[in-house]
Design a protein around this nucleic acid. Structure first.
Length: 591
DNA sequence: GCCGTTTTCGGCCCGACTGTTTTCAGTCG
């Protein structure tokens, strides 16, 4: 569905305070309007870069501005600095208001139509007086677009098909949904004659939090028959584009899949190219140019025009004088500079995990017994499992009274005897953080437990100041070991709490409290941007599945991906620690 | 509009695909 529709509510933003995301959206909006207006491409690119930087910024833009560090943000120069300052101090921007006078904002909806870009929007607007999406659709149906310069019957049909596809298009997929769809297509691809390799690429391979389209790459001696089979696949609803090396289809459910094919000796450059991100690739190509090389999905070409093919990604990075960069890092967040300087982190691996510190059972809203969870954890090679059911105040989740909590200990001890040395069970709680920041069990009860995770489950719409104060109060409780799903967001739609993250992270550091990376694909919370800041600050992270059933213990992989995207090493993730080390950490904190 | 281990001004990634074009513009990733 189109974003950026209609008038942006600047007044409301001014009242509620503009956050980084709001600001980023405004810069994207300016880039779109400037592009339609016909501004030089590099100016619109500059605005987009600023938007991207603002989204990656782990601290509040107000703080950066107060401390006079705006110019340190990548892509922010003299002009953009002035614009940000005007926006933050007045909640308005004269430049944007003028732009919105010149270019009808309803044109932004047209930009969302596939295959319609700024040039075509300008054409429709200036030469056919089309201002809105319904007007565009009507003009296409009446055959009025084909007469425009550079347009024809096919282009007109394409616009109409694009509008219809847009209405069908599903929202962004959760990571697990995207992976299971991607895996089934990879299995199909690998079974095709002539295909020697097939891999996921794009945001899926980078393990982005949510996935729009699925990108796949394959190596085949002859691409044509594979492409033909791809577009003929029974699940394909519509072929969006079709070529020898690249095709794109829409599935019946509205999901788009893109497939690239090259010969096996070019597979490395293809996989590297299709994995992105776009910004990472742009930087890499600039780096190549400085070394007299031209980089594309086809490989490297030197100044004499001689090709250097790459069957593996490693060869591409090596040819540019770089160590291998993991896909999760390829977001143009300093990874190329770090690679050049030899200071890429040794990333956490899935096999490093040996503790699950957040799990539920039948005692509250889980679906399995303590013993079943313990056996499932042992089967997965874990050495530590913490049973952390909900606290009494969370009635809807069957939270435990203090008495039930005591009874549960007996149950856990029984399961521990059953497990022997194979698995250490910890008795903990996921205690609810009430709206005022107090906890749902008395301190003396919390003191008896092996691990205390404190989480917010209700009153998630508090204003920023109250929410921050609430969370910091919980962090300050000496019995709290960890904060569970810190923002409370639910992907893909419900945003998390509006928090002053700098203050929250600083409190966690001061009090030695760990932060959870909740591995549930609906949460992935702590967000990677703040997780990376936490890593830099030396705050321990914990990858927790928050499993409510034995099968959900398998979801830790999604938490690992967040930690990797946050540049975390195994050492910084307490889920890799032994039970003894965890208990030592807990005890040291309490001295 | 930003930016500088070849630059403070002149650059700013690269190719596939589509459809409209007789050689290229627009869009996309």
């Amino acid at each position: 569905m189109p974003r950026n529709t209609g008038q942006f509510a600047l007044n409301e933003l001014q009242l509620s305070g503009m956050n980084n995301q709001d600001l980023a959206d405004l810069f994207d909006r300016m880039a779109d309007l400037l592009a339609i207006k016909g501004e030089v491409i590099y100016i619109t690119l500059a605005y987009r870069r600023v938007a991207e930087s603002l989204r990656d910024l782990p601290e509040d833009i107000h703080t950066v501005q107060r401390e006079g560090r705006l110019r340190q943000i990548p892509g922010v120069g003299k002009e953009v600095e002035k614009k940000i300052e005007e926006l933050l101090s007045t909640g308005k921007l004269a430049f944007l208001e003028r732009l919105e006078q010149e270019v009808p904002v309803s044109l932004l909806d047209l930009l969302q139509v596939p295959d319609v870009g700024p040039k075509k929007v300008a054409l429709f607007w200036k030469q056919a007086n089309i201002n809105t999406l319904p007007e565009l659709e009507q003009a296409a149906r009446e055959g009025r677009l084909r007469a425009l310069p550079g347009m024809g019957e096919k282009s007109e049909a394409r616009v109409l098909a694009g509008i219809e596809a847009m209405q069908r298009r599903s929202r962004r997929m959760l990571l697990n949904t995207a992976w299971s769809l991607g895996e089934s297509w990879l299995e199909w691809l690998r079974a095709q004659p002539g295909v020697s390799r097939a891999e996921a690429a794009g945001s899926l391979r980078r393990w982005k939090t949510t996935i729009g389209d699925i990108d796949l790459v394959a190596a085949a001696s002859a691409a044509a028959p594979v492409m033909e089979a791809f577009i003929q696949h029974p699940d394909v609803f519509r072929v969006a584009s079709q070529g020898e090396n690249k095709s794109s289809v829409e599935l019946k459910g509205g999901v788009h899949i893109q497939l690239w094919i090259q010969s096996p000796d070019r597979f490395g450059s293809l996989l590297q190219y299709a994995t992105g991100s776009k910004e990472h690739n742009v930087h890499l190509r600039e780096l190549a140019l400085k070394q007299g090389l031209s980089l594309s999905e086809r490989g490297l070409v030197n100044a004499e025009g001689r090709e250097q093919l790459a069957a593996t990604e490693e060869e591409i990075y090596a040819a540019l004088g770089l160590p291998y960069i993991a896909p999760e890092l390829r977001e143009e967040r300093g990874e190329i500079q770090a690679a050049l300087e030899g200071r890429l982190p040794r990333l956490l691996e899935p096999g490093d995990l040996q503790a699950e510190l957040h799990a539920h059972t039948l005692w509250s809203d889980g679906r399995n017994t303590v013993e079943e969870m313990a056996k499932a954890a042992r089967q997965r090679g874990l050495k530590t499992l913490a049973i952390t059911d909900h606290s009494v105040g969370l009635g809807i989740a069957g939270g435990l009274t203090v008495e039930e909590l005591h009874q549960q200990r007996v149950d856990i001890q029984a399961a521990q005897r059953e497990m022997g040395d194979a698995l250490h069970l910890l008795h903990g709680t996921e205690v609810d953080i009430r709206a005022d920041g107090s906890l749902d069990y008395p301190d003396e009860v919390l003191a008896e437990l092996d691990i205390v995770i404190a989480s917010m489950h209700s009153a998630l719409r508090q204003p920023k100041e109250a929410a921050t104060e609430r969370l910091i109060r919980a962090i300050s409780n000496p019995h709290v070991d960890m904060i569970g799903h810190p923002s409370g967001r639910l992907l893909p739609n419900r945003e998390g709490m509006d928090l002053d993250w700098v203050a929250v992270l600083e409190a966690a550091r001061q009090h030695g409290v760990a932060l959870e990376i909740n591995a549930n694909p609906n949460r992935l919370d702590l967000d990677e941007v703040y997780a990376r800041r936490a890593v830099e600050m030396g705050i321990p992270l914990s990858i927790n599945t928050d499993a409510h059933s034995t099968e959900q213990l398998d979801q830790s992989i999604y938490g690992v991906s967040v930690a990797r995207r946050a540049w975390a090493s195994a050492e910084q993730v307490m889920s890799t620690w032994t039970t003894e080390r965890f208990l030592a950490w807990k005890n040291r904190r309490q001295e």
